[in-house]
Simulated scan of single mutants.
Amino acid sequence: MEFTVVTAEDGWTIENLLRDRWRLGRKIVHEMRMQDAVKAPDGGRTRWNEPLPAGTFLSIRTPDAKSDYVPETCELNVIHDDPHCLIVHKPAALAVHPNEPGGTGTLMNRVIARFGPYAEHVHRLDKGTSGLVLIARHPVAKAVFDRMLEEKAIRRTYVAETAGAFKKRSGTVSAPIGRDRHHATRRRVSPSGQHAVTHYDVIREDGDRAIVQLELDTGRTHQIRVHLAHLGHPIIGDVLYGGRLSGDGSYRLHAERLSFIHPFTGKSLDIEDSVRPEWLP
């Protein structure tokens, strides 16, 4: 895949762009150098350590890559699509990716069928969680978005329906999460677990139910589910963490929004899922 970028200020070199702005790893930068992957739009060669004036156009060819997902043509709701990334809606009860090579029946099987040969998810949602998933469309984008996620430059907003009336309508849960040694798939708040931070705001209460908006600083397995249960407000339908049954057997957690500065265009993206769960007011 090829795309064009424009230098934003005087004095930048190709090395600056790849290593400092996009902060790509040595391996991928070396591979791009060996493939002569950065050129002037007319095809001419540009020295990687040559300072360039602002407004210089560069043509970048990403390393060849192919994802291992088996294509599977099924319904796919694409909320945002550009040459570098996709944002797609994942229905509840659909896994993001297979757990083993050659697996099918997941979101990524659907994505690769439409957008292959390369696509990789930047983050995951639990199988029972619905909402937005960010997907990189080439290896350079995957490396950049992975770094942005790690550095909290991608804002992820969720909503959940929970049980019980909150004493505090907003707050932050900073509680480490680790495995529950008594259950193969469950997690728990544990002093020896991984650092995990969740911010919450109660946006609506109705009797013993509440709609809560949440944002993540970290992305631990089952983080929101564990932290809400730790507060004494498990998600309705999330029986793994003590929630009471919902009418349809699912649990009520939805990834409703993704916000970030696009690393390749510089534009601010604030994407809201156009598919709303029935339980949201």
Rank of each mutant, 00 (worst) to 15 (best):
V226E: 05
A141S: 15
G266I: 09
A255K: 03
L214T: 02
W48E: 11
H233M: 13
R187P: 11
P53D: 05
I203E: 13
I177L: 06
G171E: 08
H123C: 03
T104S: 02
L216S: 01
P176N: 08
R179Y: 11
I79V: 15
H121L: 12
A113G: 05
C74L: 11
L52M: 14
H199N: 14
A136L: 12
R204P: 00
P263F: 09
V122K: 06
V144Q: 02
G178A: 08
E31V: 05
I135M: 07
H262E: 09
G102Y: 01
M1W: 06
P263V: 09
D238P: 01
A8G: 13
A175Y: 08
N109L: 02
P101I: 07
T106G: 00
Q223A: 08
V78R: 00
L240E: 12
S190A: 13
M148A: 01
L280V: 14
S268P: 02
L240N: 01
F145P: 10
Y241D: 06
M108S: 01
H97A: 14
H30L: 10
H121D: 09
P63I: 06
L216W: 12
H89N: 12
L134Y: 03
R47N: 10
L240I: 10
A255S: 15
E2D: 10
G43A: 07
S259N: 05
A229R: 07
V239H: 05
H222A: 01
G243S: 10
G11I: 10
R61Q: 15
P101N: 03
R220Q: 09
G128C: 04
P139W: 12
